[in-house]
Design a protein around this nucleic acid. Structure first.
Lengths: 190, 190
DNA sequence: TGTAGCATGTAAGCCGTTACATGATTGA
DNA sequence: TCAATCATGTAACGGCTTACATGCTACA
């Protein structure tokens, strides 16, 4: 397909990046389903892991733009498609990384938002909310640690490992802030 | 208007929270324009500051739900509307804070996303990107510090102040992580 | 035999943005 | 008198989610 040079969304580039990484180790490419699994292991922590339906529509978009190449395989009356990054796709991804200026991160923090209105909450509810968040953080941290354990910090996954360490440090910082906030909460003698 | 009890979006509740806070100090309520300014001072750091057009549509929604009360004032051939939170709005906000479980925060981090694909970037471009981010962080931190300076840490703005400290600690942690990452980058003897 | 995991897709709809259109007030 | 700021809204559209529909494969 013809690539009418229109910028893709960041999520599209993120998925293209997963295809690019896969191309280095595998020959066959990825199915939409597999791509979703990779996204759950990486993108989820620093971006978003798109819904399955979006994965499929992005793969369609990338194909139409000529950045991904599908190979179809029949099985029964169903088609399984595997997608590989194309030459044009590699070039475009590299160009995007070289040219585009990253926006400042966007944080949507429902816990901090509620704390902002802490005056309208019962004190113990506030404490409970922060403690629940602390637990969720610990769980997330564990998941990310498991991801890091599967990465080679000096091989071809050195950058993903660097980002995983970033994430771990972020979760640790959040935990510390939660603890400090709990200590500063009025009426808590913790 | 009749309140058909349907949950609002988090952004709606955030704006309702700003109206609730205003009600404690002022009598007249806020215009959409003023609400946007409040959002830029608070919500921006932990959530998002909605576009003007969304502010107006949310105010319409809150009015229709009976959670906000507009007072119209003619001036020339134009109408200026001020919105106050209603009794029902206060009740609903309190209910939401008491009942709803906050989702885990969502972070969309374009810098970390690009670092993930660091292999495909020129080393000095990568360093430049991180240094630029470091500067943006310092700027944001300054803005938030200015906000905190206008808050009373033991009065009725104690919770906003708590959240501002949270934000400052977060920016500091990010700065530290950037520095550490720069040190771990291959080929940099910093 | 039935259910869990692999696999693909469409439709409807919400949230939020940018672009556009308009007008009032204040001060340089 | 011109620009900036205050002020309100509509239209078009993109990104993303949930709900829904469908089918294959392995295994308990």
């Amino acid at each position: 397909m013809l690539a009418v040079s229109q910028e893709l969304s960041t999520t599209s580039y993120a998925l293209l990046g997963l295809l690019a990484f896969d191309a280095e180790t595998s020959r066959d490419g990825l199915t939409g389903y597999e791509l979703k699994q990779r996204a759950d292991f990486t993108l989820r922590f620093y971006w978003t892991s798109p819904a399955m339906s979006q994965i499929y529509s992005e793969l369609g978009r990338l194909s139409r733009a000529g950045y991904a190449e599908p190979t179809s395989a029949r099985q029964g009356r169903r088609t399984t498609r595997r997608y590989r990054i194309s030459e044009a796709g590699s070039a475009e991804l590299t160009r995007w990384l070289a040219d585009s200026e990253p926006d400042f991160p966007v944080l949507k923090h429902p816990v901090a938002l509620r704390l902002l209105m802490g005056r309208l909450m019962a004190p113990d509810r506030l404490v409970g909310m922060l403690e629940a968040y602390r637990e969720q953080l610990a769980k997330r941290r564990g998941e990310l640690e498991a991801v890091l354990a599967g990465l080679d910090e000096s091989g071809d996954t050195r950058y993903p490992a660097l980002v995983a360490r970033w994430g771990l440090a972020y979760y640790d910082a959040e935990r510390d802030i939660v603890d400090e906030t709990l200590g500063r909460l009025p009426g808590t003698a913790r």
